[in-house]
Amino acid sequence: MPKIIKVKQLDLYYNQFQALKSVNMDVDNNNIIGLIGPSGCGKSTLLRTLNRMNDLIEGVKIKGEILLDGVNIYSSQMEIYELRKRVGMVFQRPNPFPLSIFENVSFGLKVERFTDKKKTAEIVEKSLQAAWLWDDLKDKLNESAIKLPLYQQQLLCIARLLAVEPEVILMDEPCSALDPIATMKVEELMLELKKEYHIVIVTHNMQQAARISDLCGYMLLGEMIEFGKTSDIFTNPRDKRTQDYITGRYG
């Protein structure tokens, strides 16, 4: 069931400032796509165009196309709520809702006005299991989610997404608030999840991109400098600017 994301000639403006300059990107298999680049290069902005989170910011203008399964997500053929369900997002700071663990995971179902209680409980269990939280949390589903340790909060945010069965998972520096051991755990989970989901991850951490991504894009000042196989980018970059970045000359 490989699904396709195609970004074509994407320009994005914050008022006068151009944050993305005719970006192209193709994803056509179940891969982990890493986006790397120095701060302010537009990698998070690009990520947030994929589920239209940028729409929440005033003064954003977009030109170009993003196709999901051949449908332009900025066209009227794609309802924005539907899109966000198909393209879920994990944020930099874990952001579980100030509700119980159960309510967090079942949130997406409630949004769908899904009322079958038994089925909901099943889905919550399945999602927590898929995010490796079930064993730790099964006895405290009614406790507040924001009292969990940070890395469990982040896993919970992933479980919350899995409950609505997205096709693509976007991750915006999902490990930057976590310690190395928790980071490792999240990375292992990502490798597990990529069997069933497309994952696009923005990361500040070049080693992380090298470790887990299959395809990698290097961005600089709003441009996609290079996009290709991770192994190529890290061992044999075509562009001198990519080479400068990955060898640590700047960034």
């Binding site: 899109l83 879920g88 952001n95 949130f107 949004v111 609505v164």
Partner: peptide, 27 residues
């Protein structure tokens, strides 16, 4: 109420009103 709660709800496909009454007001 932190904006991250709203973003989290939007990212799950919630409408603005769902976000308000399911997350923002409880928070």
């Amino acid at each position: 109420v932190p904006n991250s709660y709203r973003e989290g709800a939007f990212a799950l496909g919630a409408t603005h009103w769902q976000t308000i009454h399911m997350v923002v007001i409880p928070a």
